[in-house]
Design a protein around this nucleic acid. Structure first.
Lengths: 338, 338
DNA sequence: GTGAAAGCGCTAACAG
DNA sequence: CTGTTAGCGCTTTCAC
């Protein structure tokens, strides 16, 4: 035990010295590069474990890779996003890459700052989940780093896309409500920035309006806008119910909002059919039994990661995958006798 | 518009050239260092915006700061952890620091790999949320980077600690159940690694056992162990109920597990009082009305961040703060007629 | 008040 | 198969 308590992190230089080889040699075994004898590899790895050596990402970054995949998320609080991360993490298992998450700025959920932060850190690949950032900027990002757009329906030849079939999902939800006899159906969605076309919520809104019109209930269409979160949705729906807005059902843009609507209905003591989107875990809880549109969050997150890995492997053409959105009917949406 | 489409990221060199100054000068205005004339500052900032310059974190890291705070999380899927992140993000607002999250390895929730990944990336500060990592390693990490231990009750003079008052919380939960007439109370908790002393769940378990013994129901103590997540908890409780384990109430180690227990009870059609821990948003939903122990996740996350910022500012002595755990009684725990 | 220059730890030619 | 070497972009003395 002649060793003093390891002070500074060991560098590649230290490893080389201990192993009695050159730095280049160490770097080679590190990168599994061509041209290293077994004997050398062994001595080097021995030295590395002895010194508890770990390469510094920053130094590597100066020359290229960071072995980091970044994901920008609008709202950690929404369970659906957690599922995406779960799938992504699992897909990265066994690869040398590490996932880091950058939450969108507090409150705004805009995502631009988070994306910039990830870019500043030179991630090797980027997953942007429904960023509220204009497409030219996104295109430009995608020219410098492999990126997959998650959720938004943009078309681009620069980045890959993973999305759900929001149009089909929203249509299924509306048909279900109509089939149950509802005509006065409101749509509960987030404030405008999410309502424009490429956004999932924009598509859901569009389909809602189209469905109402097609069914001849265009005049009964009501779009309720809310901030993010169960609590905000609760407030909005409570206010509407108090105001006596004549509505028998609500199609919520995602499950958290749907839970808020359910809470408001329960508190007001009025029957209100609620349908959500995403199918988060709690939606299937018997106490809630929320009818909703299922999206395979884990699978989608995993696919996004795999697309990035393919890019690293050399794929040049953009990829695009749309995941099925499947209606899951549960009890709570049993139509209240209107 | 003589500019060609900006290709590579601008460097400090480019800025210097455009502004007609030296690199050192640019670096100084960047860091707000002493000794820059207003005129120069202006020209430099102009050049920076013109070139859309952003300093590279990796290059900075080679010389010191990364302006990054890392947080290791065991399980994104648990809403309580999302709240911690929310508080942390908000507390970072307006500072030059960026939060990045490293999820614990898929499945194991051990956290060691995630911590290593963060360390490899030279975060300026580290928040470790209940890591399943031995204390000597943690101590050693804390010597090289400011760290706050979140959740675990370790005592150290090297790192700061933010924790909830798990002992008081668990006691309150048990007293509530006893007060409602329950004697056969089971404890639903995670598998052993979380049960040891410094862990929050370890403390809750200990208090559960102590409370049962003190109340003279030591023989009725039942510890049910489950994997993480609502679904796993559901399975375990369902199995126990099927097996006819004589129990009238369950104290769950956290709310997600409690939801699983509630689901099992609902499905089995048996009355079962369930009490949770954390007070996640859904706990207060009228359909669930879960009695639970409230922990102020946002405030705790924000405090952890502030402790780190204080360290950056120079604080040397370790800090430690324990947050109150407050019982919130809701309807579902109304005692079933035993 | 400003600039020149060294060097952080690593990778990737290139020589031997 | 192994070693030498030139930077990557930034910060930071230290001269001017």
């Amino acid at each position: 035990m002649t060793d003093a308590p390891a002070r500074r992190h060991a560098t590649i230089e230290d490893v080389a010295r201990v192993a009695g080889v050159s730095r280049a040699a160490v770097s080679k075994v590190l990168r599994n590069a061509y041209g290293v004898s077994d004997a050398m590899r062994e001595r080097v790895t021995a030295a590395m474990t002895e010194l508890n050596y770990r390469p510094r990402i920053a130094a590597r970054a100066m020359r290229g890779r960071t072995y980091t995949i970044g994901i920008e998320l609008p709202d950690l609080t929404n369970h659906f996003f957690a599922r995406i991360v779960k799938g992504a993490t699992e897909a990265l298992d066994g690869t040398p890459y590490q996932l880091i998450i950058a939450p969108a700025e507090a409150g705004s959920r805009e995502g631009w700052r988070a994306l910039e932060a990830l870019l500043d850190r030179q991630v090797d690949g980027l997953i942007a989940v429904s960023p509220r950032v204009d497409d030219t900027r996104l295109e430009s990002i995608a020219t410098s780093v492999p990126m997959v757009m998650f959720g938004r329906h943009d078309i681009s030849d620069r980045y890959d896309v993973v999305a759900g079939d929001d149009a089909a999902g929203a249509r299924a939800a509306m048909q279900h409500l109509f089939g149950a006899g509802h005509t006065r159906v409101a749509h509960l969605t987030l404030h405008e920035s999410d309502e424009t076309e490429p956004f999932p919520h924009g598509v859901r809104l569009r389909e809602y309006l189209a469905a109402m019109a097609a069914a001849g209930h265009g005049d009964d269409a009501r779009v309720w806008r809310t901030d993010e979160g169960e609590a905000a949705a609760f407030e909005v729906v409570r206010r509407e119910l108090r105001a006596g807005t004549p509505v028998t059902a609500v199609f919520a843009a995602h499950d958290e909002l749907a839970f808020g609507a359910l809470r408001a209905a329960a508190q007001a003591g009025v029957p209100l059919a609620v349908i959500g989107y995403d199918d988060v875990t709690m939606a299937s809880h018997p106490a809630l039994g929320l009818t909703t549109v299922h999206q395979p969050g884990e699978a989608m997150g995993a696919r996004a990661v795999r697309m990035l890995l393919e890019r690293f492997e050399g794929r040049a053409e953009p990829a695009r995958e749309t995941f099925e959105a499947r209606l899951v009917v549960r009890t709570s949406t049993a139509p209240p006798r209107v």
